[in-house]
């Protein structure tokens, strides 16, 4: 078997034994079902699609939750194995270092994808059965797919942290810092700059491009303003008129947020001494 598949398989096997897979799937399913029923409760009165409202609720949750899960899965991948002593043994085998990173990535993203698809999918299925509405399924599917992509981007960022960190403690601290930066600080800083500028120098186009510098914002644009059946309920109809990027472009940007950190992690790991 290919070493990448072997390492991916081992990561999945370990996560099943550690109850990571079960815990993640249950966590996402519970959050998704709670938000689906609480958030979609008034839809009967306003004739809105319950599934479309669920997309809005779940997207807002995913922006916080999936980057955190991705970073937690990944920050330990290199520095943790190095500290436990298992990495030196693995690298003494006929495995290239890029294969180790890609194998771990395949394993971690598989775990994340399984938890997201099953967790969110269960909620979507229950909502569509209860509310007899299935018009927003494409938006829901896009939300699930882009959530996996968002998680994958942060798994890749987590590997960069893991390769750079001197020990597990530093890696964990760095991961939390990166999470805060992307899900809170970045937007606050952008908002601060916009308020300070008062529309004198910064144009809407520049804001659009600036948002792409954060995978969480690219995800937000994609799911809250990207499709017509959702933007109405997300309060982003006004924003949608200002967004220059289509669904494909935003998906491409999110894919770049996976590829660039992953390549960086591979390049850094190739030079790291164990």
């Amino acid at each position: 078997m290919n070493p990448i598949l072997l390492i991916a398989n081992k990561e999945i096997q370990e996560s099943i034994r550690n109850r990571w897979v079960v815990a993640l799937t249950c966590l996402l399913a519970i959050f998704a079902l709670t938000l689906a029923f609480l958030g979609a409760a008034p839809t009967g009165l306003v004739k809105a699609s319950a599934l479309a409202v669920t997309v809005v609720s779940l997207s807002s949750l995913s922006i916080f939750l999936l980057p955190l899960i991705g970073l937690l899965l990944a920050y330990d991948a290199v520095v943790g194995e190095a500290e436990r002593g298992t990495l030196a043994l693995l690298l003494a085998y006929p495995v290239a270092r890029w294969q180790v990173i890609l194998g771990k990535f395949a394993g971690h993203v598989s775990i994340l994808a399984f938890a997201t698809v099953v967790g969110y999918g269960t909620a979507g299925l229950v909502v569509s059965i209860v509310s007899h509405s299935d018009a927003a399924w494409p938006s829901f599917a896009l939300m699930i797919g882009s959530s996996v992509l968002l998680g994958a981007a942060f798994v890749a960022i987590g590997y960069v942290i893991s390769v750079l960190a001197g020990d597990r403690g530093a890696g964990g601290g760095l991961a939390i810092g990166v999470w805060l930066l992307f899900v809170l600080i970045f937007d606050m800083m952008l908002l601060g700059v916009l308020v300070a500028d008062q529309g004198r120098m910064i144009t809407a186009g520049m804001v659009n491009w600036a948002l792409l510098l954060n995978p969480a914002d690219a995800y937000r644009l994609l799911n809250l303003a990207g499709t017509s059946d959702v933007r109405m309920f997300s309060g982003m109809s006004g924003l949608a008129q200002q967004v220059h990027f289509g669904v494909t472009s935003l998906l491409f940007v999110m894919a770049l947020w996976v590829v660039v950190p992953l390549s960086t992690a591979v390049a850094l790991f190739a030079r790291r001494e164990i």
């Binding site: 078997m1 070493p3 072997l6 081992k10 096997q13 370990e14 034994r17 550690n18 436990r84 002593g85 298992t86 030196a88 043994l89 693995l90 003494a92 085998y93 006929p94 495995v95």
Partner: peptide
């Protein structure tokens, strides 16, 4: 490295895997 055997100082393995699974993983890598 297919023809190199290495036993590290204080060798460590993943604690949740069985002995057979552990040796099976390393055997497939070689």
């Amino acid at each position: 490295r297919r023809e190199i055997g290495y036993l590290p100082d204080n060798v460590a393995f993943h604690p949740s895997m069985t002995g057979a699974e552990t040796i099976g993983f390393y055997a497939r890598l070689k």
